[in-house]
Design a protein around this nucleic acid. Sequence first.
DNA 1: CAGTTGGTGAGGAACTTGTT
DNA 2: AACAAGTTCCTCACCAACTG
Length: 301
Amino acid sequence: MRRLHNLDLNLLKALHALLEERNVTRAAARLSLTQPAVSGMLARLRQYFDDPLLVRTAQGMMPTSRAEALAEPLARIIGQIETLVQPLEFSPAELEAEFKIGTTDNSFRTVGIPFAAQLQSLAPHTRVAFFKLRREEMEEKLAKGRLDAAIAAHPAAPDNLRHKKLYHEHFICALREHHPVLQQEWTLDTFCRQTFALGSFYGGSFSGAIDRELAKLGRSRRVALSVQNFALIPELLRQSDLLAVVPSRLVQPGNRLATLPLPFPSAGYDKLLLWHERTHFDPVQQWMRGVLEGAVQREAT
DNA sequence: CAGTTGGTGAGGAACTTGTT
DNA sequence: AACAAGTTCCTCACCAACTG
């Protein structure tokens, strides 16, 4: 006689791990079980749901549409249960944790540095790692826990992630002190005659958001230099006659640069902190996000 | 061909259920 | 309470399919 197994929490945890890893061996390692054990659990899940759930293909274990539909709610539920089981109270001073933050642009200066400093003083036993992050990878890495949170400019943010605005940023034009153009009338024509440096996070690009906005006005500018490391731009400007359109926060009081407003309207952007549903209720993660947010606001004042 | 991956069957520990 | 039988799910050993 065919009998349905009891669907217990361990089976759901296994299904969650299987759906994320798409590989029985890796799911087993994650669950601290052996591969045959998880294989057996998958068999029971298949019997329970009366669906193959994951089918073996050349690309790995691919979920069926039934399994696909289960993935998202399951991730949310498992995340909530993990939170439920965790101790509610924790002491930051004793907290031993490692945080992984991804950024899709150069936010280390405005977010990373104040956050790291704040974290060290509040929770000296924690560590934080910053990662370069492509927009396409963001959701997957947050969902799988390869990252705890991400920092990105709106509208790069995927819809189905939780997010919070950290601050609004606008662009300014930066150049060295005593640059000859400072003697000229600052118009769009003057702007377009200059030679620029540009920060390109992924590298190799000579055209960015500013060039798209210029194109809308039927104008263009010459970008002669593209660098991946935004932090180098102030030094670069000091030692050349290049100009750069940069986020206003990149120019600090003390780094001997002149600034000019953009001679055309530019919307700027919101800088967002993003995280996945599965860490939304986690008290340690909530606390970490609060520290990050607070560090950024402290910096702004 | 070796390495990796998932599956199967045997055997056993832990637990539940039924009977006395 | 005590015991036996049944159930569940683990590990171990091994097999088959696939990949580079």
